[in-house]
Amino acid sequence: MQATLSYAISGIVKLPSEGWRSGEALPGVLRTESYGDPTVYKLARKHPRLTKTVAHAVLVLECSFPIAFAAKGAFAPLMLACTGSFHLVNARVMGLGRFALAFPSMYPAILYAAQRQDARILQPGDRGIK
């Protein structure tokens, strides 16, 4: 639940931002001293359509993370591959290497929870899981 909320809420709070919708947020972050990369910043400024596409892809990826639990976890491996790749890129570009370890460390639990065949919702009066 924590990982799902982390991804989904991160995307949801970006949605109202004109900067994320226009694609300007990425170059803005990339030009900072803390999370920036001069080479990637220049590339982002040179290719604004690509930058906007990447920004939209981040929004879609984060907001749609809960679908990892749809269809008995059928989408979980794909979602985790995408988010894992996202964290590797962030590790290189933004220096967020700790995220490349912290988030994927939750992936086995996500796979387990998403792909459980015997999961059911407890009803009032149930005494527990058999």
Rank of each mutant, 00 (worst) to 15 (best):
V29H: 03
I67F: 11
H56T: 11
R92Q: 12
K130W: 07
P27Q: 09
C63Y: 06
L26Q: 02
A55N: 00
S17Y: 00
R45I: 12
A25W: 04
R45F: 05
S34V: 13
L80Q: 01
L80C: 12
A3T: 15
L101N: 03
D37G: 12
D126H: 04
R21G: 01
S10I: 06
A68L: 02
R127A: 13
S17V: 03
Q115D: 06
S34Y: 07
G128S: 08
P104G: 00
Q123N: 07
M106A: 12
L50Y: 00
G36E: 10
E24V: 14
L43E: 09
Y41N: 03
I12L: 15
A100K: 05
T32Q: 13
A113I: 05
M79P: 04
T51D: 01
A44N: 02
F75P: 00
G97H: 06
L61C: 02
Q115E: 15
K52P: 10
L15K: 08
L96M: 15
R92F: 11
I129N: 04
A8L: 07
S22R: 02
F99A: 08
L43S: 13
M1F: 05
N90F: 09
V13H: 09
A68H: 07
P16T: 05
A71N: 13
E24C: 05
V58L: 05
L5Y: 14
L88A: 06
R98C: 05
V60A: 10
E18K: 14
G36V: 03
R49S: 12
P38Q: 01
G95C: 11
I129V: 15
T53Q: 06
P108T: 10
A3R: 03
A68F: 01
F69W: 04
G125Y: 03
H87K: 08
L61A: 15
R120Y: 09
L80R: 08
L43N: 10
A119K: 09
S34C: 08
W20K: 00
W20A: 04
S105E: 06
L122D: 03
L111H: 04
L59M: 09
A114I: 05
H47Y: 14
E24N: 15
L96Q: 11
R98I: 15
P66W: 01
A70V: 14
L78R: 10
K46L: 09
W20P: 02
A57E: 07
A44V: 08
Y35Q: 11
T53M: 14
Y107A: 06
R98N: 04
S105W: 02
M106Y: 13
A44T: 05
M79S: 03
R49A: 15
A44H: 03
S6G: 14
M79K: 05
A102G: 11
P104E: 01
P104Q: 08
L122A: 05
G95I: 11
R49T: 11
R98S: 14
S22F: 12
A91G: 03
L5V: 12
